[in-house]
Amino acid sequence: MKIGVLVKQVPDTATKIVLTANGRGIEEGNVKWVMNPYDEYAVEAALRLQGPLSAEVVVFSLGPARAVETLRMALAMGCDRAVRIHAETPLDAFATGNALAVAIAASGCELVFGGKQAVDDDAGQVLQIVAEVLHWPVVSVANQLHVHAGNDGITVHRPAAGGVTEVVELGFPAVIGCDKGLNTPRYPSLPGIMKAKQKPLTEQQSRDLLGGVSPHVVLQQFSLPPDRPAGRKITGDPENVAQQLVDWLHNEIKVI
């Protein structure tokens, strides 16, 4: 069996976001690039099945040249080979999902893991799109999983609103989105890092994979959220101040 893992290189979550002068993107000068944190759970999920299913684990990433670093990290953690799909500028989720799906189909993977969302665009769509293009079922968010005894399917826990958990069963092939809590991702080891150099890393062009498929979402303008307005400070009759706070919680910030 072959297992695919989808990873994305994203700015470290501690990065201060600064927009470019034209407001069409972010300044990358001081950005520290890391593997999307949710993708680490995906890599770990795949690696835990590598032995039991005698699986080859293939890691995919769509991105610019620097995305190689993230693929190397996945290889250092234990993935067997890597495929980088070159896209100089970001594609929308639809095109990204299509390109990845074509590459996955060609690789022969039957089970694909990915992070439930990337912490840069926070969209959480690519896995579902990949699944649809491949005509596979998908659980976009999972925080527990186990493969059935006969290796013919998988049971996952999908968190839903209000703390509810849906226990879902799927056959293979399938796409699974990985959430925090699914596992504890391993560190790559030093020998792993050194060995990763020797592991195969191939490159493909997104335009070759996409054929005629084009993006469907256009990003027009980036902006920064407005500064936190100066807080208000009130005093007086307890009944009255409590009411004002309740009104604020209820009507303005809507937490109750």
Partner: peptide, 17 residues
């Protein structure tokens, strides 16, 4: 080299994590 930078990254991540 990128590998050595990764080695350092691992040491940093281990200490911090």
């Amino acid at each position: 080299s990128p590998e050595l930078q990764q080695l350092r990254g691992l040491a940093i991540d281990f200490v911090e994590g």
